[in-house]
Nucleic acid binder design. Structure first.
Lengths: 214, 214
DNA sequence: GAGTGTGAACTATTTCACAGCT
DNA sequence: AGCTGTGAAATAGTTCACACTC
């Protein structure tokens, strides 16, 4: 039940298991086996069991996992039951898309601030509830609203300074879409999503397939 | 120099090395060591050398890597010198953001089609050059324009059927932002970008840090 | 009989360490 | 002297296989 040395990959799969369980639950199913989950997600049953076993025995031998219980345990582990005060920095096309992205707002990530450095955007409505604020008001916003997670949707060249600022005022986690390597202290939880790297990886895959034919 | 068994992680780092080299090149630097690249990107020098060695000896012992040469070799390996006919399916906020995302268009990914199933969007201008087309015209578009890569920005529930359609008509690579596991044949190159999983992973990291204190 | 939980075996990836070039 | 290229060692992650429970 010690979670210290659990790999990031296991955690990500846990989030995916959760989504899978939600789906099965909607279909009215009450119980699943590791084999069924694996089938659904393209994973080996043993991988599923191993991942789940890190957090304790959720299943019943001979039966499988009770979906409601397992989903609620996972949501607890991943902090989905808690509301995470989140902000978005950079309100270009991507920032706007993230503000409305399903699976951010509704998975416990409560977006309480949207910031941009462009004075023309500042003051305009980000959505029904939020206005775009100046990046200069980030420190105060973090302090007053208790923002814990920052989502970076700025150009690459602004990302590091924004991240430094967020961390300086107390943000503990960063999800960055900026195509640049961020440098942050050990204690900060970071996830970098690199869209153009993903494209390149797919392109390479096609080249390899064409050359080696599988 | 055989590229068959090279891991996806190595390929992704290669794309990141390329970006790093571009940056150093702009700064007027001509030569780097694996140690400098590693420093810049938070990687061990030996990792950098190992990755590069899979594709042959690019470096000079005692000197390092000539930036221009290495960058051009990497861009060749990753297919950046080739133009990839790409389409975006799903023109909501995310699809719109991807259409304008720097590092898609300018890294050899030429977006030649934007599709949506919403009749209200179909026919409207996606950008200066493209109109939104109906998903029903995907087959013809793939055939006529030789589309090779599809970017999925639809809701989760539509993603699998769109992917099936794209593959059926000849698309060879998929980058999906839909929060669902896709099932595709072996020969198809796929990259799934899961935004809400990234958020959950960051949230878990914060919880772990608070509990275990590093 | 069916299916979990888990040590042990296996496989993949990273890091070390050093011979060999410039 | 400095730095690459690369086998070998170390580490991490996955899969197997089976004892154990329902």
């Amino acid at each position: 039940m010690y979670t210290s040395r659990i790999s990031k990959q296991t955690i990500k799969r846990l989030a995916i298991y959760y989504r899978c369980l939600e789906k099965l639950h909607k279909e009215g199913i009450r119980t699943v086996s590791s084999h069924q989950i694996g089938e659904e997600l393209g994973l080996k049953a043993s991988q599923v069991r191993k991942d789940l076993s890190y957090f304790g025995g959720f299943g019943k031998r001979g039966v499988g996992y009770e979906i409601r219980t397992l989903a609620s345990r996972i949501s607890k582990i991943l902090g989905m039951t808690r509301s995470w005060k989140t902000c978005i920095v950079g309100f270009g096309n991507l920032g706007r898309a993230l503000l409305h992205f399903p699976g951010i707002r509704d998975k416990g990530f409560n977006i309480v601030g949207v910031f941009d450095k462009d004075k023309k955007k500042v003051g305009s409505a980000a959505d029904d509830l939020l206005r775009v604020e100046d990046v200069a008001s980030i420190p105060m916003a973090i302090r007053e609203r208790g923002i814990e997670i920052g989502v970076i949707a700025t150009p690459a060249e602004d990302a590091q300074s924004v991240v430094d600022l967020l961390i300086k005022y107390g943000v503990k986690g960063i999800v960055s879409f900026a195509p640049t390597k961020l440098s942050v202290p050990e204690r900060i939880s970071v996830e970098e999503i690199d869209i153009s790297v993903a494209l390149s990886s797919v392109a390479f895959g096609i080249i390899r397939m064409e050359r080696d034919g599988d």
